[in-house]
Design a protein around this nucleic acid. Sequence first.
DNA 1: CTGAAAGCGCTTACAG
DNA 2: CTGAAAGCGCTTACAG
Lengths: 338, 338
Amino acid sequence: MPTIKDVAKYLGVSVSTVSRALNNHPDIKPDTRHEVLEAMKRINYTPNAVARSLISRKSNTVGLMIPDITDPFFSAMAHDVEEVLTDNGYQVVYVNTSRKSDKEKRFLTSVMERKMDGIIVTPDFLDEEALDMLRRLEIPVVFLRRRPPQDLDMPFVDVDHYEGACHAMDYFFSLGHSRIGFMGMPKYSFTGQERYRGYVDSLKKRGLEPDPKGIVWEGRTIECGHKAMSKLMGEFPSMTAVFAANDLLGIGALEWLAENRLSVPAQMSVIGFDNLEVSNLHWIKLTTVAQPRKEMGRKAAEVLLQMLTENKLTAQSILLPTELIIRDTCTSASASDH
Amino acid sequence: MPTIKDVAKYLGVSVSTVSRALNNHPDIKPDTRHEVLEAMKRINYTPNAVARSLISRKSNTVGLMIPDITDPFFSAMAHDVEEVLTDNGYQVVYVNTSRKSDKEKRFLTSVMERKMDGIIVTPDFLDEEALDMLRRLEIPVVFLRRRPPQDLDMPFVDVDHYEGACHAMDYFFSLGHSRIGFMGMPKYSFTGQERYRGYVDSLKKRGLEPDPKGIVWEGRTIECGHKAMSKLMGEFPSMTAVFAANDLLGIGALEWLAENRLSVPAQMSVIGFDNLEVSNLHWIKLTTVAQPRKEMGRKAAEVLLQMLTENKLTAQSILLPTELIIRDTCTSASASDH
DNA sequence: CTGAAAGCGCTTACAG
DNA sequence: CTGAAAGCGCTTACAG
């Protein structure tokens, strides 16, 4: 691979001149610049970004830490993060943490060593060690779908899960439901907690006490929803509606209901959360709370970009609104009173 | 950020000694090594990977070029690529090409400048310019779900789409079908072409001539499948079975059939390709050709790793087998003769 | 406008 | 075993 020296030798000029041509430096005669650029083409010179980074202290790379690229949510966000960032000259290094603490830390170590310019993170574990690394980083950090710890003044980008859950509950109430079950995601899940808060607060606001029998925590998959629905029907038979903390759970519930010949929405109303593509399938048509996934990725990248260009370590957080998508899985409570 | 010099000064040793401690070099007294390592911790020293790369000519980064991380296929592969590679000390830089030629080229440029150690690529456009870059790269390249051009001796990892299509057709034939429709993905799609070849050859092998009226090309989405089914029923009404080149098309077909009160499989047998999660949903249960997605990503990473460690520019390609997953959308032809 | 020199943070022969 | 020196491929004051 030819270096800047080869180009200089080839033309009989100094490396400084070549460098200046490469960097569009004003202190160079347009003619020589042109010659140099031509010569570079001719000998197939490609600038070594590693050497440039060492001097400029800018690696032009951004880290993206997410739990699992396989989750349609994160892949949608990753898509837009990449788009915005590479359009601005950055390369994105991505890591799946698989929700493992040590993978998160390995990533942060890598961020320091590789001298990344900034990161977008969705951590699930932030112990003292990880926090310490985050503090020492001295580069822009934006939290995606997570909140930064109290003492770190870093921006986050997320959807308002709490508000979204309230929308769903409001809709149930407007339809006259009051015995509303809840299927939660794993308890450690931040988004799951927020949605649960919305469920509980919505009930309390109407003077209703959440019934522990109407609340199950099985996990986050379709199978879990299936199991959860079965459990709920056993423990809380008077239920007329169920709020699933995510669409997969909601779909599992619909599956169980279909298998047990309970008609939806006549006998049971269901609302999910996420608005996955599948939820709009002809056979499902799940009423759900939609969140703007791609926009979330885009916004996270934009916030990071802003910090990068303004050379600041903080910025304004963004909480995007949710939207209730009304489809075919809800009806008024009277229809389903048993 | 402290550098190796700071560590040396702190301890009153030379930078060479510090470097040797850092690299586990044998030429260092265990005691001093230990002291150095301790000192590094104390002053929060982190090695600068950029500087190390400049010397070692190894960036420990691998590029992953895929059309769209949002596609469950590519996200599944990306997941395992990342896992295998980071477990081996590499970081992965990923790019969505969105099937745009210039994005592919920008990526290749970046690969050269950034001195990536190797790449895994799923290109859709390889014109002379791109090929030229690929040739000049001088690093291991593995093709994922694509074939390298003739004159480039580079390995690929893929599933045997042709064989998969034959499996599907064999099954139709074993059920007595002969008037079998086909819905294809966009014609430029390599995987789509292979599946189409399997369809055509399977017919010919039985002395049947593919009927142009039984073949439609609408795209790759559910909506396309919906439209395609409608078209097919109009043009090729004697059809008793349809092979969809991917599951989304198959699901779109099922949707149209359900809307038009045609029962599946009694009146129409359907096979898809991909075995998406949704295809196993209670309401869908699509018979389909499964491909080992994650394994593909894993294998691609392993092949690359092998080339990287053996310092070779080529390796054995891998063609993974497909598997027909029989579910509920097929029955014998006699049932559906009309 | 151009070139010689120093230096980014490391590693690696080479002496000792 | 340890240190001084050269060098990876660039950029950037500093002179001229």
